[in-house]
Amino acid sequence: MSSAASLPQPAGLRAWLLSPEPTSRWQARLGRAYLGWRTFTKNPLAVFGLGIVLLLLLVALFANFLAPYSPVTGGDLRTARLLPPSAAHWFGTDDQARDIYSRVIYGSRITLWVVLLVSVIATPIGLLIGTVSGYLGGWVDTVLMRLTDIFLAFPRLVLALAFVAALGPGIENAIIAIAITSWPPYARIARAETLMIRNSDFIAAVKLQGASTPRIIFGHVVPLCVSSLIVRVTLDMAGIILTAAGLGFLGLGAQPPMPEWGAMVATGRNYLIDQWWVAAMPGLAIFVVSLGFNLLGDGLRDVLDPKAAK
């Protein structure tokens, strides 16, 4: 879904996309994507959410150009500490005399990094365990689901804390810890979907063509589970960002002087009453980005929910 698709389409292209008789694989796929996009854009809040997420992406990409100051080295500690928002420092400065605006902008990279890594690690694990367990059933199902239960039984933040304590504080370890604790719900969702799909006629049909079990799981079951997982992961993003920020806040995530939003809120805590902007600005960034992912997830659910799609 590129942003170009939101521009008014020439009638010819739209007709081509919506053709009831596509003449190639690509036309069929693009037509489907276009229909999904149209459903998505019907929901203004979802588009707003997508806008926020795209903005986060752009900001992270062009942080070098957007940030007026260095995020790690501050100004004169005697004169530039804890300055309120002004034309020179839009979000003010912190206790190290660093420009908060620049730090928030660079922080978006860390946030995006966390979100990306967690989804790249946790989603495939959950999907694999869920579909294999649901499709094969029997003792495989029992073993995999009990394993999932064990992970589910730990409070997420506490388990993440334990991991970080064992592996040592740092953003990478925090990400690994979050990923390891966030796959079980995905496995559960994928398994529930698989159980429904497993007994359907189209799976029986492909079985009767002699398809191997991996082929059925990856070619036929997984594509149907992916969409609901994408929705769930997107909705979870807010939680992941908050967990990362929480670890940062506790000093177990990103280490100073990295401009991680959670850690920034933590430093701002000391000046909350008199220099509110130190904590409020990164807090606001966390809030906006979380909101963006939630709205995007809601919109995606409308598009991808197999029950809504005919």
Binding site: F202, A204, L208, L224, P306
Partner: peptide, 12 residues
Amino acid sequence: MVFQDPYASLHP
């Protein structure tokens, strides 16, 4: 084999 319900026997 050909199944009864053509709405269920093709992958959506």
